[in-house]
Computed example of a mutant assay.
Amino acid sequence: MITHTASEQTVKVASGNAFDLTAVRRQTDFKVDNMKRVIDESFEVKLDNQKTQPTTIHTVEHMGRGENWDITAKSSDFTKIDSSTIDFPVTVPAKGETILTYTVHYSW
């Protein structure tokens, strides 16, 4: 039972950890130019699926370095959830892995 929720609103419930779906995220590049007031950083997310069927993994990333950002390179399409959150829905093959890469450009 979930109490104190607003009518017609989305509720997120954590139901546990999926041991057969894993993700390892690492930063692959980082550059700051204070004169131009920009930051460029790149990431790689290794998504692994040990299930017997293909699975879509939603890789939610938070653009936390500033309000002015742009994805300048990506290996998969994404959906902008709000001003600082994006979702990469990536289908990973059964018993396989997929590498998601992206680069974000911040300015201030």
Score class of each variant (00 low, 15 high):
residue 1 M to R: 15
residue 1 M to S: 15
residue 2 I to Y: 12
residue 3 T to G: 09
residue 4 H to G: 14
residue 9 Q to T: 14
residue 10 T to H: 05
residue 11 V to T: 10
residue 15 S to A: 15
residue 15 S to W: 12
residue 17 N to I: 15
residue 18 A to N: 13
residue 18 A to Q: 11
residue 20 D to L: 14
residue 21 L to K: 00
residue 22 T to R: 08
residue 22 T to A: 12
residue 22 T to H: 00
residue 23 A to Q: 11
residue 25 R to G: 02
residue 25 R to D: 04
residue 25 R to E: 13
residue 26 R to M: 04
residue 27 Q to P: 00
residue 28 T to L: 00
residue 28 T to D: 01
residue 30 F to V: 06
residue 31 K to N: 14
residue 33 D to E: 00
residue 36 K to N: 07
residue 36 K to W: 05
residue 37 R to K: 12
residue 40 D to P: 01
residue 42 S to G: 12
residue 43 F to Q: 01
residue 43 F to W: 08
residue 44 E to R: 04
residue 44 E to L: 09
residue 46 K to Q: 13
residue 47 L to G: 02
residue 47 L to F: 05
residue 48 D to F: 09
residue 48 D to T: 15
residue 48 D to L: 07
residue 51 K to A: 14
residue 51 K to W: 09
residue 52 T to W: 08
residue 53 Q to G: 09
residue 53 Q to C: 08
residue 54 P to E: 04
residue 54 P to K: 03
residue 55 T to R: 14
residue 57 I to W: 02
residue 57 I to L: 11
residue 57 I to N: 00
residue 59 T to I: 02
residue 60 V to K: 06
residue 60 V to P: 05
residue 61 E to P: 03
residue 62 H to G: 06
residue 63 M to P: 00
residue 64 G to K: 15
residue 66 G to H: 00
residue 68 N to A: 10
residue 68 N to P: 06
residue 70 D to N: 13
residue 70 D to A: 09
residue 71 I to W: 03
residue 71 I to A: 01
residue 71 I to K: 03
residue 71 I to N: 00
residue 71 I to C: 04
residue 73 A to C: 05
residue 73 A to G: 10
residue 73 A to R: 10
residue 74 K to R: 14
residue 75 S to Y: 03
residue 75 S to A: 04
residue 75 S to T: 12
residue 76 S to C: 15
residue 77 D to L: 05
residue 77 D to K: 02
residue 77 D to T: 08
residue 77 D to Q: 06
residue 79 T to A: 07
residue 81 I to Q: 08
residue 82 D to Y: 01
residue 86 I to Y: 04
residue 87 D to G: 01
residue 87 D to K: 02
residue 88 F to P: 01
residue 90 V to N: 06
residue 90 V to H: 04
residue 91 T to I: 03
residue 95 K to N: 09
residue 95 K to M: 09
residue 95 K to R: 15
residue 96 G to L: 10
residue 97 E to I: 06
residue 97 E to G: 12
residue 97 E to Y: 08
residue 101 T to S: 09
residue 101 T to L: 02
residue 101 T to G: 03
residue 101 T to N: 05
residue 102 Y to I: 05
residue 102 Y to G: 02
residue 103 T to I: 11
residue 104 V to P: 01
residue 106 Y to Q: 02
residue 108 W to K: 14
residue 108 W to A: 08
